[in-house]
Simulated scan of single mutants.
Amino acid sequence: MALQESTGLDVYQTYFEPTTYLGYYKMGQNPVGDDVLQFSLKHYNATFKPGGLRGKLLIDIGSGPTIYQLLSACESFEEIIATDYTDKNRLELEKWLKKMPGAFDWSPVVKYVCELEGDRDKWAEKEERLRRTVRRVLKCDVGKERPLEPAVLPLADCLLSSLCLESACGTLEAFRDALRHLRPLLRPRGHLVLTGSFDCTFYMVGDSRFTVLPLKEKVLREVLQESGFTIERLEKAQRGPETVLEKCSDYTGLFFLVAQKND
């Protein structure tokens, strides 16, 4: 297959192959995937542990075909709604949720999270808890004023998004618009939890090259403030040295932030 450079949401529908992308999340087999997982899972655990963020409804924006970002949150929220733009990603999520043949094996990642929580042996119990807690998988388009239309949902206590917005938004203006579109989904004083990358311009999924909006910390802080959020915590990490020779992406670091809606 010839190298395909992909931009915009429609090319995700056409070219994004979830089963290929999931290769990043085979723990111990992909340095870049391990870099992302170890950073983000540690901070999800700290954010959603007892005494942390909790509530009735969490909406995951741009879930992709992954569930790692929800493994800690499912202990703290009564209901989770997963969302994604592409049909293939939503089908891949449903495959795992319904234990269908060919579903990705998340058990090494689940065991890692359970170890962070203090009991690695509870991994099967956690998988079942997550399956019970994710009630729906919906289409989402952050470029629309109403991203989840036609679905009508109660206001969320928490919006979560991992490695999504900088991939879905080709310009800084589109990034601002996406946050403006998402904000009404959140209750007053509700929380936004974002995980993403710094300075990334592309990542590879097989032979397809997907462009990314490169973000700087200063710009990220400014856009969130302009969008009506107050950052409560921003964690950063430089790209792991073991990933330097990996040419599948050019990110320089990762961020994890928790922000509160101002009203």
Results as ranks from 00 to 15, higher is better:
Ala2Ser: 14
Ala2Asn: 14
Leu3Trp: 10
Glu5Tyr: 08
Val11Pro: 09
Tyr12Asn: 00
Gln13Phe: 06
Tyr15Thr: 08
Glu17Tyr: 02
Thr19Trp: 09
Thr20Asp: 02
Tyr21Glu: 09
Tyr21Trp: 13
Leu22Glu: 14
Tyr25Met: 04
Lys26Cys: 14
Gly28Ile: 03
Gln29Trp: 09
Asp34Trp: 13
Asp35Thr: 13
Ser40Met: 06
Leu41Ile: 09
His43Asn: 10
Phe48Ala: 06
Pro50Tyr: 05
Gly52Val: 06
Leu53Thr: 06
Leu53Gln: 13
Leu53Asn: 06
Gly55Tyr: 13
Leu58Lys: 04
Ile59Ala: 02
Ile59Lys: 07
Ile59Val: 13
Asp60Gly: 00
Pro65Ser: 12
Thr66Trp: 03
Thr66Tyr: 07
Thr66Asn: 08
Ile67Ala: 09
Ile67Phe: 09
Tyr68Ile: 00
Gln69Glu: 08
Leu70Cys: 12
Leu71Phe: 07
Ala73Thr: 11
Ser76Phe: 08
Phe77His: 04
Glu79Asp: 09
Ile81Thr: 09
Ala82Trp: 05
Thr83His: 02
Tyr85Gly: 03
Thr86Tyr: 10
Asp87Cys: 04
Lys88Pro: 01
Leu91Glu: 05
Trp96Ser: 03
Met100Phe: 05
Gly102Val: 05
Trp106Cys: 01
Ser107Pro: 09
Val109Asn: 01
Val110Trp: 00
Val110Ser: 00
Val110Asp: 00
Lys111Cys: 09
Val113Arg: 10
Cys114Arg: 10
Leu116Gly: 02
Asp119Tyr: 10
Asp119Trp: 00
Glu127Gly: 15
Glu128His: 07
Thr133Ser: 11
Arg135Ala: 12
Lys139Phe: 08
Asp141Ala: 02
Gly143Met: 15
Gly143Asn: 14
Pro150Phe: 15
Val152Gln: 11
Pro154Tyr: 12
Leu155Gly: 08
Leu155Ile: 13
Ala156Trp: 04
Ala156His: 03
Asp157Asn: 08
Leu159His: 04
Leu159Asn: 05
Leu160Pro: 00
Ser161Lys: 07
Cys164Gln: 07
Ser167Leu: 02
Glu173Lys: 05
Ala174Gln: 07
Ala178Arg: 00
Ala178Lys: 01
Leu185Gln: 09
Phe198Asn: 01
Cys200Ile: 07
Cys200Glu: 14
Phe202Ala: 09
Met204Ser: 07
Ser208Tyr: 12
Ser208Ile: 11
Phe210Glu: 05
Val212Cys: 07
Leu215Asp: 10
Arg221Ala: 06
Glu222Asp: 11
Val223Gln: 10
Leu224Pro: 02
Gln225Gly: 10
Ser227Trp: 02
Phe229Pro: 00
Phe229Tyr: 12
Thr230His: 02
Thr230Phe: 05
Arg233Trp: 11
Glu235Gly: 04
Glu235Arg: 11
Arg239Asp: 03
Gly240Met: 14
Glu242Val: 04
Thr243Arg: 00
Leu245Asp: 05
Leu245Glu: 11
Glu246Leu: 01
Tyr251Lys: 01
Tyr251Cys: 01
Leu254Thr: 03
Phe255Asn: 02
Val258Met: 03
Gln260Trp: 04
Lys261Asp: 05
Asp263Lys: 13
